[in-house]
């Protein structure tokens, strides 16, 4: 049988095996590579004495526990009407063009994944987006390209 990953064991050890710690554990396991793989989920389940299907069911409930492979940076563009009214569609198109990917896809160099999300709480400063944990507001097509460039240089 396959041995379980040490990173998973460490996360479970840190937070504790009780079920109530499942979300923090999944968040921590996810952090290293921006998504949760099959073996991540089944290892967490085994370490916590939960069923794999259960942990999968929980993880799939939450937007930010990505279950598909993601790039180094995840861009989440707000798709709520207030941001839409301020031109979020243009931002999205500009990003698609600049990164040469569609929503839901990851750039071939693995640096960016482009996604949409529901209201991120910056409606007065739309259009808004998150890159990883960081919010960016009052976006213009120009501004957003600069931001991307910055992240591109950093990673």
């Amino acid at each position: 049988m396959r041995t379980r990953q040490s990173a998973v064991k460490a996360a479970v050890e840190k937070h504790g095996k009780e079920r109530k710690n499942l979300l923090p554990i999944l968040q921590e396991v996810k952090r290293s590579k921006n998504y949760l793989s099959r073996s991540d989920i089944s290892d967490v389940a085994a370490e916590m004495n939960l069923s794999s299907a259960y942990v999968y069911g929980v993880a799939s409930f939450y937007h930010f526990l990505d279950l598909e492979e993601r790039g180094q940076n995840i861009i989440w563009i707000c798709k709520t009407i207030s941001c839409y009214m301020k031109g979020s569609k243009d931002i999205l198109l500009a990003l698609e063009e600049a990164l040469k990917i569609k929503v839901g896809e990851t750039t071939s160099d693995g640096k960016f994944t482009l996604l949409q999300t529901n209201c991120i709480g910056w409606c007065h400063k739309g259009p808004a987006m998150l890159i990883n944990d960081q919010p960016f507001t009052d976006l213009t097509t120009e501004k957003v390209l600069n931001i991307i460039e910055e992240y591109y240089q950093k990673s």
């Binding site: 710690n21 409930f61 939450y62």
Partner: peptide, 25 residues
Amino acid sequence: LFIGGGAYVCGEETSLIESMEGKRG
């Protein structure tokens, strides 16, 4: 601090609690 996972319904208090207990919200 308990960090949510991204689910609007967890603003409903019993969903929020379920989520904190390691379940679907």
